[in-house]
Design a protein around this nucleic acid. Sequence first.
DNA 1: ATGGTTTTTACTGCGTC
DNA 2: GACGCGGTAAAAACCAT
Length: 295
Amino acid sequence: MNCNTQVIDDYDKGETVCPSCGMVTTDHITDTGPDWKALDSEDKIKKVRVGAPRTLALHDYGLTTDIGPQKASEKGLNKASVDRMRIWQNRIRTSSLEERGLANVLNKITIFSSELNLPKPVSETASHIYRTAAKMRVAKSKSIAGMAAASVYLACRKHGTGRTLNEVAKASGLERGAVGRYYRLIINEVEKNYVPHQPVQNYISKLVNKGNFEQKIGIVAQKLSKEINDSKLHSGKSPQGLAGAFVYISSVMNGYHIPQREIAEYAEVTEVTIRNRCREILQHYSIKQKLKTIN
DNA sequence: ATGGTTTTTACTGCGTC
DNA sequence: GACGCGGTAAAAACCAT
């Protein structure tokens, strides 16, 4: 069920969410917005374009001419020569080995992104990340799929799109550890100033959505999690476990009482982890209460 | 390689339906 | 007795150095 407020499409998360209750109605939306993306201040100024969208996902930014498969006779040309032209056009287009490699990786990024239902801005960011890495020679002699997957994962984090390393690994058909290694490589070599921090709120809405829990549970869990935002409860802990704990506490508070086992399953952590997080959260609150009574 | 931190595994005891 | 829950010790996994 939906609440009465207007539902907004959250393209960064790839989900349709209600702004007041945070309910996610779907995680498969089509981005109907402009198909260009402002990459720098220069781009922002020229907000108009003519022709096909300029995209980072193609190695030549989609700017070359395609020779289509129309019938040669319609153009008054001989078919064989048109075919030859097309072949040569493609060869010229991806002339150097480097460019072919780039085209290959960007293609992989597109495939992984669609596998993960990622909105366009995220895959564009992934392409941008890989381009930067390639420019800095970090991608030299590295696994194509690995670099592509790591770029996608980093793009997800940058956009706050709740995709775990596990999910990206699954979509790319790679080992979790492998994607993680390439991810760290990019973090260390390319995106040095990037501060990895995924808000728990993203995981909560995802978890509530995944388990089809009552929306009220989600709302309260979000509220609770926001209160501890400034505490040290997150550091080093898996956000899934924390999100699970909030959802559990919220479900008890609302009288639904979802078993820990069930939440743990959806959150992809064990019950023990949920319990430990619960204990910490509750301790945090009891400390807060004590401080309040003292003052 | 190593050491510190976190998660998982496996097991136990308690209360309730 | 089955289930949910809270707890613990030890193993495994993870991560930074």
